[in-house]
Design a protein around this nucleic acid. Structure first.
Lengths: 143, 143
DNA sequence: CATAAAAAGGATAAAAATATCTTTTAATCT
DNA sequence: AGATTAAAAGATATTTTTATCCTTTTTATG
């Protein structure tokens, strides 16, 4: 429903949201220990997000990853979509054939409603919401 | 959150609930095609459930798997617990350290509520509920 | 222009999940 | 008892996910 990779990616982006901006970019080297994700693996994930325009990056000295103002308007689902793919997220809880949102099976009715809510949260929560929101920033840690 | 193996197991048990009883046992051979799970794999899963007393089975001729009356009172969570383990189900959505139901992180607050509901459904829905309930039996298919 | 910094990319490795095959054990029926 | 049937158990194979390593490309700066 939500892969480790996606969780890692969200953690990384969260860190960027809290610590980076256009004039202060951050290297993977400075993130991976804080969010407890292997350096090379996190790099891969962030590169993937950058390639899909979900986050920003520049190469070379003084380079690194960061979130632009627009990037911050991205939703959690944007991240998950890139890392896990649309398919995984929307696949039927029961893996039933001929069963999806529109034509749900019984288990869909039982658990699907909650899954849908889960998806709604992912779709409606932006990075900005998380960071600027009413949330106590301290609660994010430890990532 | 819910492995394929668990889904397979639930499907298998559902089939047993609909088609078996103490005096009419069913062989894996007769289930696997209907529920679209590889024969040997489904066998493993059902054996595991049987070993943990979630479903019933007898060996030899006229043998097979079946659900006793008591078996039918088992919840979906009983199945998931055996196949996926307690840990997987209750693990933090974000994989945060120091984060669980009692001491939730921010993402917990966002998506955790729905996850908890999801878990509640699994914990409060018995096989019997699914089969005898108000549900139209046809809706289960195709498994 | 040279150099160093940093992401990007490709190839590989390790671990976990999924799946299959083979042998053993138990029950039933001649 | 012996043959047969079916689950149980054990060993092995495949695939997917997760993770690492190493090289290449880009870019800023002295």
């Amino acid at each position: 429903m939500l892969s480790n990779s996606s969780k890692y990616a969200i953690k990384g982006v969260l860190y960027l949201a809290l610590n980076s901006n256009e004039s202060h970019k951050i290297m993977v080297r400075d993130i991976f220990e804080v969010v407890h994700v292997p350096e090379a693996y996190l790099a891969k994930l962030l590169q993937e997000l950058s390639r899909h325009g979900i986050i920003s990056s520049v190469r070379g000295p003084k380079g690194g990853f960061y979130l632009s103002e627009d990037d911050r308007k991205r939703t959690l689902m944007d991240i998950v979509r890139v890392i896990d793919g649309e398919k995984r997220v929307h696949s039927c809880v029961m893996g039933m054939r001929n069963c999806d949102m529109d034509n749900p099976c019984v288990l869909h009715k039982l658990v699907g409603a909650n899954k849908s809510k889960f998806i709604n949260v992912l779709e409606n929560t932006t990075i900005l919401d998380l960071v600027e929101g009413k949330q106590n920033i301290e609660e994010f840690f430890p990532l």
